[in-house]
Design a protein around this nucleic acid. Structure first.
Length: 279
DNA sequence: CCTCAGGTCATCA
DNA sequence: TGATGACCTGAG
């Protein structure tokens, strides 16, 4: 398998933080220190040394797929600079996760991933998705000739029995995924149209899917549609806001970047607090 | 044996 | 509109 090394210097990019920020469930650290990313039917390896990242892929793939995927064109430092210094909590959270990027992932993949995410922990979410890919995805060779699996298309999952995905450890979420796959295949919900809608319209459409509620719809809007206004509120975020913003979070101050802040807060609550305890 | 994990749905007032 | 319980599963 031939491949190229594409070197880029990128600020506010930390592949480890991205990997651990809980928005992508098919990214992992390899033994040699590189990271492997599976997205849709693709596979990419990344190596990072300081601000220099090496992407192992074809030039055309990098420009059309991976550059938007990692949101490389956006100035995250500019976003962080809009946080007022008086807001100690947000300043700290943004500093802790300053290498996070909002990934632009595949719409169908995010729908399934966040259907599975509800009342679930990240380790098990990853395993569920890996199980589904291995069972229903297609085999592909990576750059060493080893096999990885693509994310199964809606047509494949729509054929299944409602409880069939319990075999992949989905539990009660199995019927959410299968019924949603059917809605997509019949174009009751047309994903190509959803992808072109604005935030409000896209969210309203996604909420029609069985198993998609407020929080999951916002995750899909943020991580697939790149709607930066989306601010998914889960248990961690709710708790963090209650603790640090008694008068309410000043959402209006951060027009068009709420989703980025949500990720800083989420990642800080998930990883930052533990790190403090260990010190 | 409990409780919890990136919630949502059905049901009832 | 808002509150309440059920729901798969496995790790701690």
């Amino acid at each position: 398998m031939s491949y190229k090394k594409i070197k880029k210097t990128v600020k506010n990019f930390n592949i480890e933080e991205i990997c651990n920020s809980g928005q992508c469930f098919r990214m992992e650290a390899m033994e040699n220190g590189r990271y492997r990313v599976l997205a849709k039917d693709r596979c990419l390896e990344i190596e990072q040394k300081g601000e220099v990242c090496t992407f192992f892929c074809e030039e055309a793939d990098f420009e059309t797929f991976w550059k938007p995927y990692f949101d490389l064109e956006r100035d995250y430092a500019l976003c962080i600079s809009k946080i007022p210094a008086e807001d100690l909590y947000l300043t700290r959270a943004a500093r802790f996760g300053s290498g996070i990027r909002i990934l632009k992932q595949d719409l169908w993949e995010m729908i399934v991933s966040f259907l599975i995410s509800q009342q679930n922990n990240i380790v098990r979410i990853r395993r569920c998705i890996q199980n589904i890919c291995e069972k229903y995805g297609e085999e592909r060779p990576d750059m060493y000739g080893n096999t990885y699996y693509s994310f199964p298309k809606p047509e494949v999952l729509a054929e299944l029995d409602e409880d069939e995905l319990k075999a992949c450890n989905l539990g009660y979420r199995s019927k959410y995924v299968v019924r949603t796959a059917r809605s997509v295949v019949t174009e009751e919900i047309n994903l190509e149209k959803v992808a072109k809608m604005d935030y409000a319209a896209a969210k309203e459409e996604l909420l029609k899917l069985f198993g998609v509620g407020e929080k999951v719809a916002d995750c899909i809007c943020l991580f697939a549609l790149h709607q930066m206004q989306a601010f998914p509120v889960d248990t961690h975020i709710r708790q963090a806001l209650e603790q640090n913003y008694a008068d309410g979070f000043p959402m209006e101050q951060y027009e068009g970047m709420q989703g980025i802040l949500q990720q800083y807060i989420f990642y800080y609550e998930l990883k930052g607090k533990k790190e403090q305890e260990n010190v």
